[in-house]
Design a protein around this nucleic acid. Structure first.
Lengths: 346, 346
DNA sequence: TTGTAAGCGTTATCAC
DNA sequence: GTGATAACGCTTACAA
């Protein structure tokens, strides 16, 4: 195979004994507009194909001031929740001719700030970010710099940054209400990072559902400080030791739920015989756990789709950037991890 | 905040009343080499910071003929196996100053070919690819085009393409031998895509382990045609219906294992009481399944690390590209899904 | 110690 | 219908 490393449009034009302009026009589908002869078109296309010409997007982007590239910053691509969102985003973006520069902030706020700069230096046409914490200054700055940006998953209350997230409040309310309808009254909640907005909304949903059914809130039943399985494990062990223990646990993330499963195993407790469990985040394995888990499903696919759509819209009306505030509906997937212990139980 | 969209090095230099070369030198850490005065350095750095100057990597890359960018093509970023590998690659690459352009081939060979071209047009400095199928022409072509490329996960037998993968043969041998040591003789194997090299190697390991213990191979116990959970479910149902059924199943992927769990639930079979299970691929949830699953762990992190290291080495010695052939050791993680049914059982 | 200018590969403007 | 050429923002010889 020929070494095509140095074949640029100039070389290609020389080979064809044509000017670069003509070649460029044919290759960019502007042959008609410039009334380039059919014969020339064929010659150009044939040569480009045979010589394996690959256009240099760097040069193209530099000239056109658009890179056909979108930056994606997420806290942990290894987490299947974010991996699925990323898949959706990549798929949607590429369908529209954009490539994704993937950045993993590793839950580190200063890394996140640097990544924002990095993506700007890469001249991405837009940024989709699932922010790490509650600090939003760097993101607001980017927002004001006329570079399209949209936040997913996490939101910043009180700012007008565009976001696409789940309706965490309603999802949590539904989850707890589902437990109540199944006769549960002592319902524990293991939460994640306390000051993150999804957590705040989910806890509010938990409390409001209890209130709505006139169940008194027991502060000892609400605990935890991280979305990790470690936290789930520790808090579950603590809850199991209470007298009486809760009859149901609401896990605010699927990793927390995994930790609870581990704790149950270690304590020889069965689900749903010994306690019921419902978790935020549906995962591919949720239904394959030996006790299939009742979960609150989030529209990860749709989240990715709408995020890309918004960025595309921004790129469309250059300059005036509209904002967007979407809370996607969640849905409860009932499975065997919740047991009816009420009077009406079968 | 000031609109910094148009601030380039020229503007910055004008602001400072300096030439672009001086500014460029300071910003690229070449101040010492050019004996630029301490005062000028400080002025430049301060101004760049205050005016929020972000260098344009497109221009830089075009000039330097290197983009500090690596292309990553994987069949499915939503699959946690690949998501974890991607995390490792992103982390290693960025640590070395490279960004990742992420492409999901969606298990589509023609998409894969296009993505290879796309990445070349993006002028990536190297490509890491987990190929979809057994067709390798487009990859060989890329290999010969002097653009560093390395294959992960899948390999092409008989070619000299550089690869980093798991020792699938040994992993499968260990898995089956573990079952044999636990007294199992009727051991089924649910496989994935028949003509993919990992599958071929794993099946060979399965057969050789049986042979080594003088257990006759029953062809009816080896079935399946895809790495999906659907396949795992269907094949498991079929195996459960045999008389006698196998006492153990070896699943060649974790998704297959999930399908088996679903089938077991539906048939009211318990693990490991009714049958033992061992699966290729350790996943974060493996130990949290209500019957913790015995798995063959793969070094995903190391796979990513070595892939990046190889690409870096190639970029280092420009021109002469060495090759690499690595089969990473796997390790068996014993858990409760395998029961000792032999004479020596406790 | 700093400045000038060519050139990286494109596309677009103008000319013929 | 086609061709020359400037310009995108940067780095780096070569000058001074």
């Amino acid at each position: 195979m020929r070494d095509t490393a140095k074949l640029n449009i100039k070389e290609l034009a020389r080979n064809l004994d044509l000017s670069v302009s003509t070649v460029s026009r044919v290759l960019n589908g502007k042959a008609r507009a410039y009334r380039i002869s059919e014969e020339t078109q064929q010659r150009v296309k044939k040569a480009a194909d045979e010589l394996n010409y690959v256009p240099n997007r760097l040069a193209r982007s530099l000239k056109l001031d658009k890179s056909d590239t979108i930056g994606l910053i997420i806290p942990d691509i290894g987490n299947p929740y974010f991996a699925e969102i990323a898949k959706s985003i990549e798929s949607q973006a590429r369908q529209k001719g954009y490539s994704i520069i993937l950045c993993d902030s590793g839950d580190d706020i200063s890394a996140e700030e640097e990544l924002l700069m990095l993506l700007m230096s890469h001249k991405v046409d837009g940024i989709i970010i699932a922010p790490v914490g509650t600090e939003q200054k760097h993101i607001v700055n980017t927002f004001h710099s006329a570079l399209p940006i949209v936040i997913i998953d996490r939101i910043f209350p009180g700012s007008n940054l565009p976001f696409i997230t789940s309706d965490n409040y309603q999802g949590a309310f539904d989850a707890v209400n589902h437990l109540i309808l199944n006769g549960h009254k002592r319902i524990a909640c293991i939460q994640g990072i306390g000051n993150s907005q999804p957590n705040i909304d989910r806890v509010k949903g938990y409390k409001d559902a209890l209130k709505a059914s006139n169940i008194k809130i027991d502060k000892k039943l609400l605990a935890g400080d991280s979305f990790t399985k470690d936290n789930g494990y520790k808090q579950a062990i603590r809850l199991f030791a209470m007298t009486p223990p809760p009859t149901a646990i609401f896990a605010l993330s699927n990793l927390i739920a995994l930790g609870i499963l581990g704790a149950a195993n270690d304590c020889n407790l069965n689900i749903p015989e010994d306690f019921s469990l419902i978790a935020f985040d549906e995962q591919p394995y949720s239904e394959y756990l030996s006790t299939p888990m009742t979960t609150i499903n989030q529209q990860k696919d749709e989240m990715g789709r709408q995020a890309v759509d918004y960025i595309m819209a921004c790129i469309g009306n250059k300059g005036k950037i509209a904002t967007v505030s979407v809370k996607l509906k969640t849905n409860l997937i009932p499975r065997r991890s919740v047991k009816n212990i009420g009077l009406n139980a079968l």
